[in-house]
Amino acid sequence: MNLGIDTTTPPLLSVNDIGVDYGHHVGCTDVSFDLWPGEVLGIVGESGSGKTTLLNCLSAQLAPTRGTITYETRIEGARDIFTMSESERRMLMRTDWGLVRQNPRDGLRLGVSAGANIGERLMSVGARHYGDIRNEAAAWLEKVEIDVQRIDDIPSTFSGGMQQRLQIARNLVTEPRLIFMDEPTGGLDVSVQARLLDLLRGLVTRLGLSAIVVTHDLAVARLLAHRLMVMKDGKVIEQGLTDQVLDDPQHAYTQLLVSSILQP
């Protein structure tokens, strides 16, 4: 899982002093980090820790109250996400970024076929050959281990795990460099979780993706993330190498989290 992460190149994503307030209530604050190509950052914390707020802000769905986020675009170098025009931002989110939502229903078009779901991003950037689009969709169904025969079925006929894998395929078809994942295995059966995690590990390694994964499940974080950020009450209370944070937690809260995991 460990790729050569070259920190001499500019970081893919640079987050500086991000804070999001909801009126008087602090959603998250004082968050700063850099993310390089090929790195996976895990954000863990319990409910109310601010991790989802942070993810929504990082993925440009929520404007921050303070701070800036800079992304190293393919052609134009480092750009501030929130000073970009909405059109540019939406284009970025459709091509170079992916967003895998916790509930796949929120990230799919339930009324159109699996093939159309995967092909949509291609069509939105100008793909106009039906046969090619369909072949590409079929190839991705194979990659996420969904039976290709189901290419014309609508996602409401799929199981939760299949829907989640379809959501992943829908996001990866444009070969994004950065994926945001919000509790990607939440709500799935354990065996289904295992399969999904295996798929994600493989894709991240093979495609050299960067990812930011929010999860409350430390085991998922250990499996997927190179680095970990622990959040509590809107703040990052500890961060570092994943296995170091989990095996040698320094902060009281991290120690509490780690010691609370049930062992089957």
């Binding site: 909405e86 059109s87 939406r90 078009r109 159109v112 076929s113 093939g115 159309a116 092909g119 949509e120 991003r121 069509m123 939105s124 950037v125 106009r128 039906y130 689009i133 369909r134 290419i151 014309d152």
Partner: peptide, 22 residues
């Protein structure tokens, strides 16, 4: 309105794709 403003018409082609698939 946003889709028109930003010329984001991929969804229309999704509908046509669906027709051909079905």
């Amino acid at each position: 309105r946003k889709m028109h403003a930003l010329q984001e018409y991929g969804l229309m082609h999704v509908k046509l794709y669906e027709d051909i698939a079905r």
